[in-house]
């Protein structure tokens, strides 16, 4: 059912990865992504892969869910693979027309596709183990230094917008479904006809949806005002993010992994 779609893809398994502070997780994600691209030889990239698969294993999220995200970008992966195949130097393995596949190209294609796959896996690990709310809050916190350059309102507004979006996406999805059904019950034909006709057929859905969104926004604004909302200034937060030992150890592991990648890069 459409109404059960939730924004983000949090999966509860209670693993140690789930318990890492969201801020730390975002920073580590950036670090790991950098190192996936720094891994320049077979050994270092295989080590990165090993590290990331360990994270996946520890996260307790079924591998099929990770695979699902990979599948979504499979075309990009294939295109990357094929293009890189022809951009290598070295001994030609197969040649036809003006193109040739070389051992260098094969390596390159392999590296690039593996990097993209790892990138997807590690990003999925973040979204599967962190609630959208925690992510929002972490982003707000991480961006908070911007207040020293006079952007405190922008940061707060961004975070508040994300919170409201998270809350209203399922509501609007459900509403869209209801309006579609109501118009179909009045004989609206949404499936057949030329492209123009189909675009025109969306009007009876988009207009009520727009009106309803405006109504939501207006009523929500009044309700927020009634709950003493006056913007970001002077607000406190119930949830305080506190760094724990888990955050310290996980950071150590990540840094250690990165050092090994550098070492492997130098040695081989």
């Amino acid at each position: 059912m459409l109404k059960d779609i939730t924004f983000g893809q949090y999966y509860e398994s209670g693993s140690v990865i789930h318990r890492i502070d969201a801020r730390v997780k975002i920073l580590l994600l950036i670090l790991i992504i950098v190192f996936i691209f720094i891994s320049s030889n077979l050994f270092s990239i295989l080590f990165s892969a090993l590290g990331i698969f360990t994270i996946i294993l520890v996260s307790g999220v079924p591998f099929s869910l990770y695979a699902k995200n990979l599948k979504a970008i499979l075309p990009i992966l294939l295109i990357t693979f094929v293009i890189n195949l022809f951009y290598g130097e070295g001994e030609a393995l197969i040649s036809f027309w003006k193109l040739s596949i070389t051992t260098g190209g094969l390596y390159r294609a392999f590296y690039m596709s593996l990097r993209i796959a790892l990138l997807i896996f590690i990003s999925s690990a973040l979204t599967y183990t962190t609630t959208p709310n925690d992510l929002t809050y972490a982003i707000e916190k991480l961006l908070s230094p911007l207040k020293y350059v006079g952007l405190q309102n922008a940061v707060h507004t961004l975070a508040m917008m994300m919170t409201i979006v998270l809350r209203f996406i399922p509501i609007l999805v459900e509403e869209t479904q209801k309006i579609m059904n109501a118009q179909k019950a009045r004989g609206a034909d949404l499936e057949n006809g030329s492209l123009m006709r189909r675009i025109k057929a969306l009007i009876p859905i988009l207009i009520p949806l727009l009106i309803s969104s405006i109504r939501h926004a207006y009523e929500l604004a009044e309700a927020m005002e009634c709950r003493c909302y006056t913007g970001g200034e002077g607000r406190t937060r119930m949830k305080q993010m506190r760094l724990t030992k888990i955050d310290f150890y996980s950071s150590c592991f990540a840094v250690l992994g990165c050092l090994i990648v550098i070492l492997l890069n130098i040695i081989f």
Binding site: N133, R167, H216, A223, R237, M238
Partner: peptide, 20 residues
Amino acid sequence: NQLIASIVEEDVAFGPENLG
């Protein structure tokens, strides 16, 4: 149209948070 957060406890906290 009155609930702001997508977790119950965070929504209830919204008012007191605004009051600092």
